Amino acid sequence: MGKTKGFTFRKIFPSPHKPSLTRSRPFKAYSFVPFSPLAMLDPTILTLGGIVLGIAIIERILERWGVIDLVDQFAKVMRFILPVTFYSALIYFFATFMF
Rank of each mutant, 00 (worst) to 15 (best):
K3A: 13
T4K: 15
K5C: 08
K5T: 15
F7T: 05
T8E: 12
R10Y: 13
R10A: 09
R10N: 15
I12V: 12
I12F: 08
I12D: 04
F13G: 03
F13S: 10
S15W: 09
S15N: 14
S15H: 13
P16I: 04
P16M: 08
H17T: 10
H17W: 06
H17N: 15
K18G: 07
K18D: 13
S20H: 08
L21V: 14
L21S: 11
L21R: 08
R23W: 06
S24H: 12
P26R: 14
P26C: 13
F27C: 04
A29Q: 03
A29I: 02
Y30R: 04
S31C: 09
F32C: 10
F32G: 14
F32N: 06
V33D: 01
S36D: 01
S36E: 15
P37V: 04
L38I: 11
A39R: 02
A39G: 08
M40D: 02
L41P: 07
D42H: 06
D42P: 01
T44C: 08
I45R: 05
I45C: 02
L46R: 03
L46Q: 02
L46K: 08
T47I: 06
L48P: 05
G50E: 05
G50A: 02
G50W: 00
I51H: 05
L53H: 09
L53N: 15
L53Y: 15
G54M: 10
I55P: 01
I55L: 06
A56W: 12
I57K: 02
I57S: 09
I58L: 11
R60W: 08
I61K: 01
L62D: 06
E63K: 10
R64D: 05
W65V: 06
G66S: 10
G66V: 02
G66F: 11
G66T: 00
G66M: 02
V67E: 01
I68A: 05
D69F: 00
D69E: 11
L70S: 02
L70N: 00
V71M: 10
V71T: 01
V71C: 00
Q73N: 06
Q73M: 10
F74D: 00
V77K: 11
V77T: 12
R79V: 14
R79F: 12
F80S: 15
F80G: 10
I81W: 07
I81E: 12
L82G: 02
V84S: 13
T85P: 00
T85C: 13
F86I: 15
F86R: 07
F86L: 07
S88A: 08
A89R: 12
F93T: 02
F94M: 07
A95K: 04
A95N: 05
T96Y: 10
F97Y: 14
M98R: 11
M98T: 14
M98L: 09
